[in-house]
Design a protein around this nucleic acid. Structure first.
Lengths: 348, 348
DNA sequence: TTGTACGCGTTATCAA
DNA sequence: TTGATAACGCGTACAA
């Protein structure tokens, strides 16, 4: 059916040299001394035959694939594409490829993909999928396999490589902003508590409130089953329908915030007049929604780039200054937040 | 540094059988007869040693990698993630992996990636990047390498495998919609004419207008340098600033439409009161922008899925009914279009 | 039912 | 400066 590939042997034959010589020529390392004449002969033959080296055989021999595996929970979440782009650009610049795997937020798929990637002998892993249940991660750690945690904390104080947003500061600035506007009944649309991101953002939102002498009201906390618009919508609906709604709600990410916006509209809460909404991440086009989203900006592309740089540094045995990179999370105020219509009493 | 991998040989030794026996066990084909007892012994040894087969060696031997390469022009364009997801899901279900490459809309990167992917011996290619200058594609065709064109036409009448949106019908419905609303001065924000998508959508928009006895006005046609919001914004700005603006503008994709929206706002054109805007693709959340976007829906995930199914069918030697799949493009009317404020005279 | 032998396409190492 | 050899980890005819 298909033509037999032209191999290094074919080229060698055509150039009347030994295969190993061909190898030396095409890999063209400076320190090797080659007669310019043979060099040319080999190159000519290679071109003529349309020789294309087999990365497969090469990797087998070298025991390196120059490939990074990347685990993403949901590629349709606009938060991730810039991250992927950042990672891929950096990897590409350093001669690495990236194999992307969409885990669909399923720990089962996550495990499957992890196995596949390792069978494919990827040199390292970028893990942005977010399950806390990480027997898998523990394995990697135990086997000392190079990996970077992206946008998720490591389960223990472990000194895993990691690139994370500063959730604490981000949530604090969101809460501070709302309080400064005069809000006192602040709700939280938390992310799934099976993820470290979900846990952290909820915990930090609460502690920020406490730091401002505001007692988090459990009745105003709702937990979304996922990080999507749809799950966010359902969570927010539960919150809005149960009794007295909050005057503001802080969401674990922008999609949940978008879901909250939809739920608010459905029950007749106007944003921001009746309800202020804050998201997290500042996904692309967040400012173009109706209303434009106040959110905590996280530098997505940078995160991807730094994660890739980190594993590669580890792979190449370079010096690593910080094993754990914390990127800035800064509030971006847009039209989805405003002072509450009926001013609340200032309470101690 | 790193532990030596446990190979099939280690397992063989541990189970006191020959490596080939191990191979037979792990690949577990039904027709092979194996003593249940040895089978168990091997499996036990494999598990105990944490044996993980090397896909590399396997692929080298089998001359198949069960990997598909995928070329995407811009992963941060929301149009593509669902396509990728569709492709990846389908591939995964059939035992294939997908290596994603972001060409950044650069023909140079496209060529580089294509070379890398082929060196890596991917079994087939999904090509969604969109350059018309396709010496590269011609090569693939000549070498009879399996590939599918996604969202781009093949340059010749060639019978390449392809999955495309029905640009003709889509554009016609957009134009018809505007005309039905009463628009006569209809502008076009075309996509880059170096891409088949850009060319087709412009051509079909024009011919749809002609079919309705409306002469396309070249002064109302602007060409965006890319498919992004930013390039769309710049193109639309040129259009709006030059003399008398149109009452409606049809855009080559949603991001360009979003850019047009921004440009319109900048020059004080209210949408849809002063200007109707139509996009193309119906990217996720298109209905959540301000204003919600009237656009032509293209089933993104389905396109990805069908593309993957198509190459895989080719690879597995399955019967292929249609080499060229045309998916439906249907208008979704939202608030970015309305009747023109000052009714235009009906002209013949 | 299992073992033997070889090849998949490279490259590092040693010898010439 | 170049050639020869072995090994990377696996699958499969063929033999036993």
């Amino acid at each position: 059916m298909s033509e037999p590939r032209t191999t290094i042997i074919d080229v060698a034959r055509a150039a009347s040299v030994h295969p190993s010589t061909v190898s030396r020529v095409v890999n063209g390392r400076a320190e090797l001394s080659l007669l310019p004449e043979t060099r040319q002969r080999v190159l000519a033959a290679a071109r003529r035959l349309g020789y294309r080296p087999s990365a497969l055989a090469r990797s087998l021999r070298l025991r390196r694939t120059f490939t990074l595996g990347m685990l993403i929970p949901d590629i349709t979440n606009p938060f991730f594409p810039p991250i992927i782009k950042g990672a891929e650009d950096t990897a590409h610049a350093r001669g690495y490829n990236v194999v992307l795997c969409n885990t669909e937020d399923s720990s089962e798929r996550e495990a499957t993909y992890l196995r596949v990637l390792r069978e494919r002998q990827v040199d390292g892993l970028l893990i942005a999928s977010s399950f806390t249940a990480d027997a898998v991660i523990a394995d990697l750690r135990k086997e000392r396999f190079p990996f970077v945690l992206l946008n998720r904390a490591s389960s223990r104080g472990a000194d895993d490589l990691g690139v994370l947003a500063d959730n604490r500061t981000g949530m604090a600035s969101a809460i501070d902003h709302l309080i400064a506007l005069g809000h006192r009944r602040i709700g939280i649309a938390a992310g799934p508590q099976t993820t470290t991101t979900g846990q952290e953002r909820l915990a930090y939102a609460k502690s920020a409130m406490r730091a401002r002498h505001l007692r988090p009201d459990e009745a105003l906390i709702t937990v979304s089953e996922g990080f999507s618009e749809e799950t966010g919508y359902r969570a927010a609906r539960r919150l809005f329908r149960a009794g007295d709604p909050p005057t503001a709600v802080v969401c674990a990410n922008d999609l949940i915030a978008l879901g909250a916006l939809r739920a608010a509209q459905e029950v007749g809460l106007r944003v921001p007049a009746d309800l202020s909404v804050v998201g997290f991440n500042d996904i692309p086009l967040a400012g173009r929604f109706d209303p434009p989203l106040t959110t905590v900006r996280v530098p997505q592309q940078e995160m991807g780039a730094r994660a890739a740089a980190l594993v590669i540094a580890a792979l190449e045995g370079e010096r690593i200054e910080a094993r754990r990179v914390l990127v800035e999370a800064t509030l971006v105020v847009r039209a989805s937040t405003a002072a509450p219509a009926r001013a609340e009493r200032r309470s101690a």
